[in-house]
Design a protein around this nucleic acid. Structure first.
Lengths: 115, 115
DNA sequence: CCGCATCCTGGCCGATACTG
DNA sequence: CAGTATCGGCCAGGATGCGG
């Protein structure tokens, strides 16, 4: 998968240039959809961990970091003791929400569990 | 991750009950979106391999098999020599197409490449 | 209360060669 | 032309324990 020269003869990047794939990658984490869903409302870290059954702190952290890196969510730190961190949807996340709902409707009709 | 008893005490399945996640999993393969995109029109196997740059026959086969298993696409075999197989969108795939387009629009605005 | 560091594992993906 | 067979690498995700 290495691109040897910067003027690579193989259009490996051409694949990444698909905006749909790009979008898909941004929600591809195992828990990201559920997290985004709960972030309709502003949530604290521990609150999220309770809302998402079965996720560990480490994984929750990594998923949140990726969502933040992709500017899907916003992270607000309150400098106080005990620590307090709030997560909420950023612009990209808000705009993605209708798509999430469409996917849900589609999933109910055609999801694998209906087979 | 093993559920020991068939009456597992862990609600691992509860996670899978989200229709959105369910939908996401059905298009999660590395090449599935691009394949679905090209299947707007009916395509033959070799044609797909040419249209999707960099994919091998083995991988293309596995991705197609999964899409077929999930009833996203239809596989039509013509019993003749040389062999001929045509792939096209099934109902679920057709219905998913608008979502794909929405994701594309969103990806153009908020995709990682714009950062 | 919140988050990072480390180690480990399973499954997707890939290259290559062979078949009807 | 349209696939299978086989071997192997890579990495997301998971468990655990430490720190501020």
């Amino acid at each position: 998968m290495a691109r040897s020269s910067f003027e690579g003869e193989i259009p490996a990047e051409q694949i990444e240039v698909c905006p749909v794939t790009d979008a898909q990658n941004m929600i591809a984490g195992k828990w990201k959809i559920i997290i985004l869903w709960h972030l309709r409302e502003t949530r604290r870290f521990g609150e999220l961990q309770r809302l998402v059954p079965g996720i560990s702190k480490a994984i929750l952290t990594s998923q949140l970091r990726e969502l933040e890196r992709d500017q899907m969510i916003h992270r607000q730190v309150y400098q106080e003791v005990p620590p307090k961190v709030e997560y909420s949807l950023a612009e990209a996340g808000l705009q993605f929400f209708p798509i999430l709902e469409k996917m849900g409707e589609w999933g109910k009709k055609y999801g694998v569990r209906n087979k």
